[in-house]
């Protein structure tokens, strides 16, 4: 069997402090290569913490974390991760183009290569012609698209997205969802996607992973067996609505 993109077993995390906060306890989860997995759960259950652990930003205090067969830090050193945050977190002093090139600079990509790569990605996220604008001159949705392009510039095999579309309105979210699926089908990376939006989770994912309110246990690992590519109409199909209802019941309970 192929090694999983991300394999967490019995992972625990305790933030030090008085008193220490045990956020995750004995959490196991695996993300297969090239699959799209959403994480959904009540606020404060540890979703962002989990992404940080996977990216090797925060070391787990117990359990094991394997990323593509190695440790999270190995994967970090090999530049396997693309991270997208809730707030686009662009550098205000850089133009759109320079923002997209940032990670390329950090990992030492050849300038010509990263310039070409950034230009291609900006076309992919539909921002051609806006290369020289500053982030303050963009709309929220455009900023988020820049953030996605920025994450992709180093060709990461694992995309970690922490509520990337929670700050944009419903319509923009739907169009960004569609765009993300298109990008993902071209890039073929594995995605771990945190969201609060059930519909978004179902529309995007191969699996929706529901976290419980405390201790970060996974209360449901729900496969979404809807054909891809998924047209907009899938959102009103009976299968889709059934999955939505099922998730709502778990989350509201």
């Amino acid at each position: 069997m192929e090694t999983a993109a991300v394999e967490l077993s019995e992972v625990g995390l305790c933030y030090p402090g008085k008193p220490p906060v045990q956020v995750l306890d004995g959490l196991s989860l695996s993300v297969q290569k090239r699959s799209f997995v959403s994480l959904i759960g009540p606020s404060g259950c540890g979703k962002s913490t989990l992404l940080r652990i996977v990216a090797g930003i925060l070391p787990a205090t117990s359990g094991t974390v394997r990323v593509e067969g190695g440790t999270a830090l190995d994967a970090q050193r090999a530049h396997r991760f693309g991270f997208v945050f809730q707030d686009a977190a662009l550098l205000p002093w850089r133009s759109v183009q320079e923002n997209v090139e940032l990670l390329g600079e950090l990992v030492g990509l050849d300038p010509a290569v990263r310039r070409a790569q950034a230009a291609a990605l900006l076309a992919l996220v539909d921002l051609k012609g806006r290369e020289h604008l500053r982030p303050s001159q963009l709309s929220g949705g455009m900023r988020q698209r820049v953030a996605i392009a920025r994450a992709l510039v180093i060709n990461p095999s694992i995309l970690l997205m922490d509520e990337p579309f929670s700050a944009v309105d419903e319509f923009q979210r739907e169009s960004l969802n569609k765009e993300l699926l298109r990008i993902w089908s071209e890039q073929q990376n594995s995605v771990l996607f945190v969201t609060h939006n059930i519909e978004e989770a179902v529309f995007l994912s191969d699996y929706v992973c529901v976290m419980g309110p405390h201790g970060g246990e996974i209360v449901e690992y729900l496969p979404v067996e809807l054909d891809r590519p998924r047209p907009e109409e899938v959102r009103v199909s009976p299968e889709f609505l059934a999955l939505r209802r099922h998730l709502r019941e778990i989350l509201v309970r």
């Binding site: 940080r52 990216a55 090797g56 930003i57 830090l73 970090q76 050193r77 530049h79 991760f81 693309g82 991270f83 945050f85 809730q86 707030d87 977190a89 550098l91 002093w93 940032l102 990670l103 600079e105 950090l106 990992v107 180093i154 970690l160």
Partner: peptide, 26 residues
Amino acid sequence: VDHSLVELFQSVHAKRSAVLWKLRWP
């Protein structure tokens, strides 16, 4: 600095000097 940005730099194992000159200094 925006904490997300520090984490973004960390996620690609950026050097401390890169965090200083490309993030904190500007």
